[in-house]
């Protein structure tokens, strides 16, 4: 080892000023993007998954539910969009859970940075991943004959609503990702929550066709509100009240689970 360059490099004239929360979060996001560059297979869940979902449900249920796959596609695409993105939010928690086991997390926690940046950075990249999934599904939908009555701007608005909701939903998984010890258990818990939440909603069928007791659940399911709002925005009908409720739910999720996440993050053993 060259002693001269070593001793010179050790001596640092001035410490840089503390990184701003924004720049710390973006730096963590940059790291997540770098990791994707080395292991592009990480993107399977946001590329292959949505394609399979869309093809499968359109052709499996289309004929039975709407009489034609074309008509069903117009109805179901906004729903599957919400469902897919909601499902892949779960990977946020799984990734975090894996990351925490590694020693590098100890370094992050011992750095003089705005601590939530570690998580916010990861979630920012996840929002990019969710957008990728949405873009792929909508493109495929168009190829299969889907048409949005409210046009492109309707789609963009719907996607923004879905991303906002998914971002807030992610905080449930980050909290569980920190608290739950094993990856398998985390996967099981996530599935247990996500399956009923996504299927027992207005994603696939009109809730009015369901038995009464089920309708009660579907009507208060947050996913139903997001699906209805997306449908409205895409096909051009008024969903102001749905949007308002989604805002309440999302802000609530961030407030509660964001706080809990940070609490457990700081006090992790």
């Amino acid at each position: 080892m060259e002693n001269n360059s070593l001793e010179k490099s050790i001596k640092l004239e001035k410490r840089p000023p503390k990184a701003s929360p924004m720049s710390a979060a973006l730096t963590f996001a940059w790291r997540a993007l770098l990791r994707i560059r080395y292991v592009p297979e990480q993107l399977f869940d946001v590329t292959v998954f949505p394609i399979i979902f869309l093809l499968m449900f359109t052709y499996l249920f289309g004929g039975a539910i709407s009489g034609s796959t074309g008509e069903y596609l117009d109805f179901v695409l906004p729903g599957i969009l919400v469902m897919t993105v909601a499902m892949i939010t779960m990977y946020t928690g799984l990734d975090l859970n894996k990351d925490i086991e590694k020693g590098v997390f100890d370094r992050f926690r011992s750095l003089p940075i705005w601590q939530p940046a570690v998580l916010v950075g990861a979630l920012l990249v996840d929002v990019v991943r969710y957008s990728l999934a949405a873009t792929i599904m909508i493109t495929l939908g168009y190829i299969l004959g889907f048409r949005a009555e409210a046009g492109f701007s309707g789609i963009v608005l719907a996607v923004l609503v879905i991303l906002f909701f998914s971002f807030s939903l992610s905080w449930i998984w980050t909290m569980l990702g920190i608290v739950v010890r094993s990856e398998k258990a985390l996967m099981a818990i996530s599935m247990m929550l996500l399956f009923p939440l996504t299927f027992l909603s207005s994603v696939f069928v009109d809730p009015s066709t369901m038995p009464n007791w089920l309708q009660h659940f579907v009507d208060i399911n947050p996913i139903t509100f997001v699906v209805d709002a997306s449908r409205g925005l895409i096909h051009g009908y008024d969903v102001t009240s749905e949007l308002l409720i989604i805002t309440y739910i999302s802000v609530g999720l961030i407030a509660v689970f964001g706080t809990l996440t940070m609490y457990f993050f700081r006090n992790k053993n």
């Binding site: 790291r31 770098l34 990791r35 080395y38 292991v39 590694k102 020693g103 590098v104 100890d106 370094r107």
Partner: peptide
């Protein structure tokens, strides 16, 4: 802190 087990990101 340099932890007992690699405290750098091994993937990058």
């Amino acid at each position: 802190l340099t932890g007992q087990f690699a405290s750098v990101d091994e993937e990058i």
